[in-house]
Design a protein around this nucleic acid. Sequence first.
DNA 1: CACCCGCTTTGACGCGGGTCAAATCGCGCA
DNA 2: TGCGCGATTTGACCCGCGTCAAAGCGGGTG
Lengths: 242, 242
Amino acid sequence: MPANNPAIDLDQVRRQCARCDLRDLCLPAGLDSADVDRVDQMVADRTSLASGDTLYHAGSPFRALYVIKSGSLKTQAVSEGGELQILGFHLPGEIMGFDALAGERHQCSAEALEASSVCRLPYAELERISASVPGLQRQFMRLVSREMGDDHDHMAMMGRNQAIARLALFLHSMSKRQARLGRSADQLTLTMSRADLANYLGLVLETVSRLFGRLQDMGVIEVRRREVKILDRESLKSVGEC
Amino acid sequence: MPANNPAIDLDQVRRQCARCDLRDLCLPAGLDSADVDRVDQMVADRTSLASGDTLYHAGSPFRALYVIKSGSLKTQAVSEGGELQILGFHLPGEIMGFDALAGERHQCSAEALEASSVCRLPYAELERISASVPGLQRQFMRLVSREMGDDHDHMAMMGRNQAIARLALFLHSMSKRQARLGRSADQLTLTMSRADLANYLGLVLETVSRLFGRLQDMGVIEVRRREVKILDRESLKSVGEC
DNA sequence: CACCCGCTTTGACGCGGGTCAAATCGCGCA
DNA sequence: TGCGCGATTTGACCCGCGTCAAAGCGGGTG
């Protein structure tokens, strides 16, 4: 174990990409080691957030994108009528803040659902470097495109009018995203409250709670508070199909 | 009026950006005239689509993005269970095909709702040119970010559980998008069927039909088939707030 | 250990919107 | 002009989910 030298620790913090577990999912994916170093130098800092901390607020000026290193966050927007809508739940390796690009200001707020850490990417730097590192440009686009794909999944889920189908689709999708991170696909730990989940699904929290119970009675899942075990993936998929 | 010379016509087709009505909304926005010419040369072709024609299919390999020049299109995806979900309706100046970037293949299909034309942008060219034209890169990001913002609006709408609020929000949003194009904000010509609209809103077509009637009875709009006139914007907004 | 408070579950009830059915409209085509 | 068929409207019925209310549960704090 190295001596507890702050200077060395700081240096480690600034050379993490090459050793980060997420390097194959994150911006450095597919880059050679020299380019990974350039990305590493671009990362302004790696911030820790406590549960409930806000990464950025809707309306605040846009300066940087963020890649989630650990933990999970939710994004939410307030409509003109004052209604809150949760837009998404975000896991490690995902990029956040992109919707702010069109208008110079963040369009939604991002809040940590648990202790989390993110890598901050000042956008001016990202633009500059990606002009000279073609692979970075491409990987960046991939991440953004994946965000868009996740949004489309969300819409498809909201389009199902059977409430239980929405919950099943949500669980299935979370399971896939967990697996993408190399975690167990069958044992989920939900980090959002029932109220958050209900809002995300376009339901009320009582309905979500009842549906968890019903899926459990059907033998499809096992629920204990925020721990969910998927017992029968095939049934889960078929419930998702209405 | 010039002689009907095909060679000159073809040349005009290839130098359209500078004279296009949409140049301030589209990729050339903010570029100087030399850079606009480079964008112009990048446009592979400008394709005409008849109503019902498909621009690209889900699953087909991704090669190009498209900017809508005139008309309107819908994008739709088929979920694992075979359920169709309409993801969006797209108007001139909007960019399409972006969600394909993550996986090399289109994730959804795009179909013309009326006679339409699009500018095809081979992605390889776009990548190459945007590395040397910083303003293009920035404007491209803006367009993509705007698409994402539209998706978020869609989700917020689907989250409202009152059906009439969804329809009101949809009409309001279409009105704003029409206005962005310099068209009348109060006189909408919907190009999608009631079935498409219902699917998009997460409702059934009978409900949509009834709600049009109800908004008309309330004096908020005037409907005649696909022609909608907004009579009372304030009421429309308040209905959208549930 | 006991209290408190937020989160979650469970129950009862009513209505909004889905489902099924049929009529009407209106455009395209002969 | 008349026919045919898809698109849209309208009606009747009823079930799923939202609403209101109250009880459990569990974790944090003094």
